[in-house]
């Protein structure tokens, strides 16, 4: 997930200037780390005025129909389609590769040890990574510090699979965590993987899962941390990895 450079203080100043006669541009931007911040809908700021207006018109039109028939599917589909359009511009960012490596699976998955690593910002509350030295940082406190996260090196949290669910936390300034709070399996599928292990689909699960905040400095991740993580996982006997971005 790419997080575009934003400065909450600058946004606040812009919003203050325009408070008495808010432009549509300011309205769109207010959903991305502004006074109407909503990380599920922050993509609105990436849309042209015409497209943003069409997104909102369509949303209201479909909501009106859903009020009568209760069919939420059209609302999900509408949000999904505009979610895709809202991030399409990132397809041309700097991280493009013409070719890529490929490591074949050496044996059947039913004989493999599988690991889980996500960029979702999960952690064990008893081992809080404490970003920037802040104890018990909340999601609300993390969001305005998005740029500090993006400029900082990642911290990999180790999460034992038997972590009591009451101790499992998620905090990430770049995406809407409401779904992950309701059920970690939406992007950190520890329960579903354990079920597939019991079925014999997976030989073994590594007893620890791993997570970091994907809104992080990319060069240190690429050059330093990811190679270290690969070495650590191979030392622990992992045969393959399931990776999930936010």
């Amino acid at each position: 997930m790419t997080i575009q450079a934003v400065d909450p203080q600058q946004i606040a100043a812009t919003e203050a200037r325009e408070a008495e006669g808010e432009s549509f541009e300011a309205f769109k931007k207010s959903f991305a780390y502004g006074r109407r911040n909503d990380l599920l809908f922050k993509f609105i700021k990436n849309l042209s005025d015409e497209d943003a207006a069409e997104f909102l018109r369509g949303l209201l039109e479909k909501l009106g129909r859903t009020i009568d028939d209760g069919d939420l599917g059209r609302l999900y589909e509408h949000v999904y389609e505009w979610n895709v359009r809202g991030y399409a511009h990132e397809a041309a960012d700097r991280w493009q590769y013409d070719t890529g490596p490929f490591a074949p699976l050496a044996k059947p998955l039913s004989e493999c040890t599988l690991g889980l690593l996500t960029a979702t910002g999960h952690f064990d509350a008893r081992d809080d990574p404490e970003p920037f030295g802040v104890k018990n940082m909340t999601q609300a406190e993390a969001i305005p510090r998005i740029m500090e996260f993006i400029r900082s090196e990642p911290t990999l949290s180790t999460i034992p699979l038997d972590t009591p669910r009451a101790e499992l936390r998620v905090r990430h300034p770049g995406y809407d965590i409401r779904g992950a709070v309701a059920d970690p399996n939406v992007n950190f599928p520890i329960d579903r993987l354990a079920e597939l292990e019991r079925e014999g689909v997976i030989g073994h699960l590594l007893p620890d899962a791993f997570s970091f905040v994907g809104a992080t400095a990319q060069t240190p991740l690429l050059k330093k941390h990811a190679p270290q993580w690969a070495g650590m996982l191979q030392e622990r006997g992992v045969d393959a990895m399931l990776l999930v971005p936010a």
């Binding site: 997930m1 999904y80 996500t118 690969a230 996982l233 393959a240 990895m241 990776l243 999930v244």
Partner: peptide, 25 residues
């Protein structure tokens, strides 16, 4: 893109990966 970088580095190291991502990305 973070997970993309992790996947590429892991594969370079000989560790097979699969990424699950939502359509927007």
């Amino acid at each position: 893109m973070s997970v993309g970088h992790v996947a590429r580095v892991f594969e370079e190291a000989g560790l097979p990966t699969v990424v699950v991502m939502a359509g927007a990305f």
